[in-house]
Write a protein that binds this DNA or RNA. Structure first.
Lengths: 98, 98
DNA sequence: ATGCACATGTAGCCTGTCTACCTATAGCGT
DNA sequence: ACGCTATAGGTAGACAGGCTACATGTGCAT
């Protein structure tokens, strides 16, 4: 999901959290203790590149999707759809029309 | 998913694993170290009731959905659909037709 | 007799989310 | 001037749950 919100444009951590809230219609409210470590992991995995910048006196770390990140996003979107298909198949009500 | 496969009829642990494989078209192959502890948790939560029985000399623990289990299944199916909707909304490609 | 499918189970590792904290600045109202 | 709130980034430790690996034993076919 982080990769997805960064697809449009680079954002800093706090803005990523707000973007996730917005896109989910308020359903998601990921705490910073979840997002910041996740960003570190994604950066370590080279899917994001982060850079410090001072904007309006504020220190911001802005993250941008790398080429590998875009590729990973596409792959993981496909995996997500495959995953939900499998779960849906298992969860389908037993009540066959048979 | 375990609750879902038990909806049709009671099954023992090994058969639950096979049912999950079958329903998922082979995509799922949950190891016993995942399923058996899960069955314990579900039983402790009173969503399943298990009973030992000797079938063909084999000791089998057959699990049946409780009334609470059926209720939980319905609830969790709804939660799953809501959950995937939220994720899908976040993952949707940014490329709006706008 | 050997090995495979059936059948149940535990121990411990590992990952990742969450709660709870800490730090610091900008802008606003009083 | 002072405090509050939103903005901004971060860590530590608790906790849950899936997975690997291991342990045990039966029925049946070759």
């Amino acid at each position: 999901m982080i990769l997805a919100v960064l697809e449009e444009r680079p954002l800093h951590g706090y803005a990523i959290i707000e973007a996730l809230q917005a896109r989910s219609g308020g359903a998601l409210d990921l705490p910073t203790g979840t997002v910041y470590p996740a960003l570190r992991r994604l950066e370590r995995a080279a899917l994001l590149s982060g850079s410090w910048g001072s904007v309006g006196g504020r220190e911001r770390r802005t993250y941008t999707l790398t080429r590998a990140g875009r590729h990973a996003l596409a792959t993981q979107r496909a995996e997500w759809h495959e995953f939900t298909s499998v779960i849906d198949a298992v969860l389908r009500p037993a009540g066959g029309v048979s």
